[in-house]
Amino acid sequence: MNSAIPEPNKTFKSLTDADRELLSAWLDGEIKDTEPILRLRERTPEADLYLEQLSQTRALYHTARRDVSPDADALTSAVLDRIQFSRRKGVSALSGWRPLWPWLMATAAAALFIIAAGTVFIQEVFPTRDAAPAASDMMVSDTASNGTAIPSVEDFAAFVDEEDPVGGLLADLEDTWGDLSEDDLLQYAALWDLQTEPSSVMAADQNILWWEQAERLAEFFDQPDSAGFPTSE
């Protein structure tokens, strides 16, 4: 017990601890049966005095503390803010991966874009180099059907450049590589055509993939006339 507290009033010598508790409780409206209170008040006048002092104490207490109240709106807002913060934190804690998925999606999209852009770039810059070797690999063997060594595409193209590609005839080719059969020459003529087509023609066909070009080549050999390639016949 705090030594600073004065000893509770000794003036009410006629009241027991139980009497004082009863009167205090009665002041609070906790005693429904008023009979003991009436008897006590009849027994000693100190009961009324004690009640009066308790009432004064209570009134003084409430007077002094009437301004003790919070800023209700601010307090409510503060509580709700803290709750909403903890709710957000709770959601993140429950599914910690969620904040990451937009980054993953963005990274994946960027990777796809780079791949797509790279593919388009390669097709733009090297449109025929991808197609022609592949077609040549598929369509031309290293050795002609009659056993003659076959010139490379570069040799063939160099020859055509020297011989005026526009006016070049199949007969000129036969003169140069007389050992080659007509079919072999036609194959090389087709390859040469693919590699030396004017840019306007290539622009129209730039989106054609190498296997489509190869199919066109194969179609030519099946139906030479319809493909428009010159023939010796």
Partner: peptide, 23 residues
């Protein structure tokens, strides 16, 4: 509870009396 409240009231009353705020 009843005894604690009564006791607390008496302590407060005694302090206020000591300060001259209650007769």
């Amino acid at each position: 509870v009843r005894s604690r409240i009564a006791r607390a009231r008496e302590m407060i009353r005694a302090m206020l009396q000591e300060k001259g705020l209650l007769p």
